[in-house]
């Protein structure tokens, strides 16, 4: 069953029929399992992995991404959880992790412009209670994200017919 999720995670467009063939499970069982996961929220949603750098668009519609490291003062009883939850609620914030090292949280933030992200950090994020400091790292180029490498796929060097 776990195999079905792993297959969908790689390619959400696989048909239930194909998944059934690949796993050797009956189609009905595959469909039922997927419906159950969709209902329970184990499968949140399906989305495309977009390499925006290759999309030729109006430059004003570009987005910028930044990693923001946040240092926090923990509170008795909740540690960092309450502040992390507050930060996570902002739609600009794409991900929030509690991390080891010199900072406590690592967030990914997207915005229309560098200015928009800077404003978000200085006006929204830094002003949250118990946020002690932030360090902002703007993304200049994406080479790989979530296991997908954004470079040209390696060409097939094989000869067309070999023994």
């Amino acid at each position: 069953m776990r195999q079905i999720l792993e297959l969908l995670e790689r390619d959400a467009q696989l048909s239930h029929d194909t998944i059934a063939t690949m796993t050797g499970l009956p189609v009905a069982e595959v469909s039922e399992a997927i419906a159950t996961w969709e209902a329970s929220g184990a499968i949140r949603r399906y989305k495309a992995v977009v390499d925006w750098d290759t999309v030729d668009e109006d430059p004003t519609s570009e987005t910028v991404t930044a990693f923001i490291d946040v240092s926090l003062a923990p509170a008795r009883g909740v540690g960092f959880d309450d502040v992390a939850a507050r930060i996570a609620r902002f739609p600009e914030v794409r991900s929030v992790y509690l991390v080891s090292g010199s900072h406590d949280l690592r967030c990914t933030v997207t915005g229309r412009t560098i200015r928009a992200v800077s404003d978000f950090v200085s006006q929204k994020l830094s002003t949250i209670d118990r946020v002690q400091s932030t360090a902002t790292h703007f993304v200049l180029k994406t080479y790989k994200r979530d296991g997908d490498a954004f470079s040209q796929p390696e060409p097939d060097h094989r000869l067309p017919v070999t023994p």
């Binding site: 097939d156 094989r158 000869l159 067309p160 017919v161 070999t162 023994p163």
Partner: peptide, 10 residues
């Protein structure tokens, strides 16, 4: 050509 004639991994 779609080659199914290749005797090595893709």
């Amino acid at each position: 050509v779609i080659s199914l004639g290749v005797g090595e991994p893709d």
